[in-house]
Amino acid sequence: MGNDPLKTGARVRIRALMPPGHVRAPAYLRGKSGSIERAIAPFKNPEQLAYDLPAQEHMLYRVRFRAAELWGAEAEHPDDMIEAEIYAHWIEAMEQSDAA
Protein backbone atom coordinates (compact mmCIF):
# COMPACT_ATOMS: atom_id res chain seq x y z
CA MET A 1 0.00 0.00 0.00
CA GLY A 2 1.19 3.51 -0.71
CA ASN A 3 0.80 6.35 1.72
CA ASP A 4 -2.18 7.90 0.00
CA PRO A 5 -5.45 6.49 1.25
CA LEU A 6 -7.58 4.75 -1.34
CA LYS A 7 -10.45 6.86 -2.56
CA THR A 8 -14.14 6.12 -2.34
CA GLY A 9 -15.12 3.92 -5.28
CA ALA A 10 -11.64 2.44 -5.81
CA ARG A 11 -11.78 -1.24 -6.78
CA VAL A 12 -10.01 -3.50 -4.31
CA ARG A 13 -9.51 -7.15 -3.50
CA ILE A 14 -9.15 -8.61 -0.01
CA ARG A 15 -6.04 -10.73 0.41
CA ALA A 16 -6.76 -14.45 0.39
CA LEU A 17 -4.30 -15.47 3.12
CA MET A 18 -5.60 -17.86 5.76
CA PRO A 19 -3.12 -17.82 8.67
CA PRO A 20 -4.17 -19.32 12.00
CA GLY A 21 -4.78 -17.01 14.96
CA HIS A 22 -6.61 -13.74 15.37
CA VAL A 23 -7.31 -12.14 11.98
CA ARG A 24 -9.68 -9.20 11.73
CA ALA A 25 -10.57 -9.63 8.04
CA PRO A 26 -13.55 -12.01 8.02
CA ALA A 27 -12.77 -15.27 6.22
CA TYR A 28 -15.83 -14.99 3.97
CA LEU A 29 -14.44 -11.78 2.45
CA ARG A 30 -10.90 -12.95 1.79
CA GLY A 31 -10.11 -13.28 -1.90
CA LYS A 32 -13.25 -11.27 -2.79
CA SER A 33 -13.33 -7.97 -4.63
CA GLY A 34 -15.33 -4.88 -3.87
CA SER A 35 -15.01 -1.13 -3.72
CA ILE A 36 -13.97 1.37 -1.10
CA GLU A 37 -17.05 2.90 0.57
CA ARG A 38 -14.99 5.30 2.65
CA ALA A 39 -11.63 5.67 4.36
CA ILE A 40 -12.30 6.01 8.09
CA ALA A 41 -9.08 6.71 9.98
CA PRO A 42 -5.85 4.98 10.95
CA PHE A 43 -6.13 2.50 13.82
CA LYS A 44 -3.65 0.26 15.56
CA ASN A 45 -3.42 -3.18 14.01
CA PRO A 46 -5.74 -5.42 16.07
CA GLU A 47 -3.78 -8.49 14.99
CA GLN A 48 -0.81 -7.14 16.97
CA LEU A 49 -2.90 -5.75 19.84
CA ALA A 50 -4.49 -9.17 20.25
CA TYR A 51 -1.11 -10.62 21.26
CA ASP A 52 -0.08 -7.58 23.33
CA LEU A 53 2.58 -6.65 20.77
CA PRO A 54 3.59 -3.12 19.78
CA ALA A 55 1.01 -2.24 17.13
CA GLN A 56 1.43 -0.22 13.96
CA GLU A 57 -1.31 2.00 12.62
CA HIS A 58 -3.09 1.07 9.43
CA MET A 59 -5.82 2.94 7.60
CA LEU A 60 -9.22 1.39 8.25
CA TYR A 61 -11.61 1.31 5.31
CA ARG A 62 -15.21 0.39 4.82
CA VAL A 63 -15.35 -1.89 1.79
CA ARG A 64 -18.58 -2.64 -0.10
CA PHE A 65 -19.20 -6.02 -1.75
CA ARG A 66 -22.03 -7.18 -3.99
CA ALA A 67 -23.86 -10.23 -2.69
CA ALA A 68 -23.24 -11.92 -6.06
CA GLU A 69 -19.47 -11.50 -5.60
CA LEU A 70 -19.57 -13.19 -2.19
CA TRP A 71 -22.14 -15.91 -2.69
CA GLY A 72 -22.48 -16.39 -6.46
CA ALA A 73 -25.69 -18.09 -7.51
CA GLU A 74 -26.61 -18.66 -3.85
CA ALA A 75 -27.04 -14.93 -3.25
CA GLU A 76 -30.62 -14.00 -2.36
CA HIS A 77 -30.37 -10.93 -4.54
CA PRO A 78 -27.22 -10.24 -6.58
CA ASP A 79 -27.34 -6.48 -5.99
CA ASP A 80 -27.68 -6.56 -2.21
CA MET A 81 -24.60 -5.11 -0.58
CA ILE A 82 -22.43 -6.26 2.30
CA GLU A 83 -20.16 -3.65 3.86
CA ALA A 84 -17.34 -4.36 6.31
CA GLU A 85 -14.39 -2.64 7.93
CA ILE A 86 -11.07 -3.86 6.56
CA TYR A 87 -7.56 -2.71 7.47
CA ALA A 88 -5.22 -1.52 4.73
CA HIS A 89 -2.81 -4.42 5.11
CA TRP A 90 -5.57 -6.80 3.96
CA ILE A 91 -6.44 -4.73 0.89
CA GLU A 92 -4.95 -4.92 -2.62
CA ALA A 93 -5.79 -2.16 -5.05
CA MET A 94 -7.00 -3.54 -8.38
CA GLU A 95 -6.08 -2.22 -11.78
CA GLN A 96 -8.92 -0.52 -13.58
CA SER A 97 -8.85 -3.30 -16.18
CA ASP A 98 -9.68 -5.75 -13.37
CA ALA A 99 -12.83 -3.88 -12.53
CA ALA A 100 -15.98 -5.90 -12.82
Partner: peptide, 12 residues
Protein backbone atom coordinates in the same frame (compact mmCIF):
# COMPACT_ATOMS: atom_id res chain seq x y z
CA UNK B 1 -35.85 -2.77 -1.74
CA UNK B 2 -32.07 -3.15 -1.70
CA UNK B 3 -30.50 -4.61 1.41
CA UNK B 4 -27.27 -3.31 2.90
CA UNK B 5 -25.70 -5.54 5.51
CA UNK B 6 -23.09 -3.88 7.71
CA UNK B 7 -20.60 -6.28 9.28
CA UNK B 8 -19.27 -4.48 12.36
CA UNK B 9 -15.80 -6.02 12.13
CA UNK B 10 -13.44 -3.53 13.72
CA UNK B 11 -13.58 -0.15 15.42
CA UNK B 12 -16.90 1.27 14.23
Amino acid sequence: THIRVHDSTADM
